[in-house]
Design a binder for these strands. Sequence first.
DNA 1: CTTGGGACCTGGCTGC
DNA 2: TGCAGCCAGGTCCCAA
Length: 268
Amino acid sequence: MPELPEVETIKNELSPWVVGQHFNQVNVLDGRLIYQLPVPEFCRRLTGQAIESISRRGKYLIFQLSVAQYLVVHLRMSGALLLNPDKIDPYARASFTFSNGTHLVLNDQRRLGIVWLVENIEPVVGKLGPEPLEDNFTAAVLSQRLSKHHIPIKVALIDQSLIAGIGNMYADEILFAARMHPLRTTDSLSPEEIQHIHNSIRRILRSAIARKGASTDTYVRPGGQLGTAHFDFKVAHRKGKPCPVCGVSVERISLQNRGTYFCPNCQP
DNA sequence: CTTGGGACCTGGCTGC
DNA sequence: TGCAGCCAGGTCCCAA
């Protein structure tokens, strides 16, 4: 599932191929992909525009276009962007051909991905919390945001309005690294514990970016290669397997209809 | 206001 | 072997 490290990797690996290029052809195979815009109008407005730059905000990929517009892509659960794929994918939802001949295909098996074409990105990404890897995301900022809520720390970490970009699997890894039980409530944490969570957020996310993301399910990089961050996972998706630190069996509980994995010994 | 839970979506897996 | 039901989870929406 594309979370911050995966979207960051996609941005980095896509940029050399498409930044500065024009959209020569736009083909949408599934109209549900496009947010509140008829497909013909989407294609008409996009064709001929150039990509000035690509950036990332949380899990959103933002293409800045030449005519003061933005193409925003959220890959949700199973979306992928592939450069010059060998074969036509049965889950292709849209494809784009650029002026340099590059062919970009958006695949999405579960069809939850969304694409916006907007003049203002504020309505799309305006409610997101701070970027956890930026310098201004300090432990004090984290503390101030967590203290306003009385919710399990796991729920807080995946709340995009509190911190942008952390999803279910990295939240579990962050809490394992911080040796913290996922049900600890946000307003019960000591300054030392918050500092430890802050350190873990940055370390886990940076490491995952260096590993080009985690290919636990459908995630692939634009060139088709897999990421390797999941080889570092200690608890995520490891129910019943021994904790790599203490050997106790990893437990799974359900939180907000999501699997939450943790070591009951290391995360008391 | 906050928090919790269901819906959306599809395919792989598990257990009877 | 067939099939029901669970599981994966980001975000939106509604209810308490």
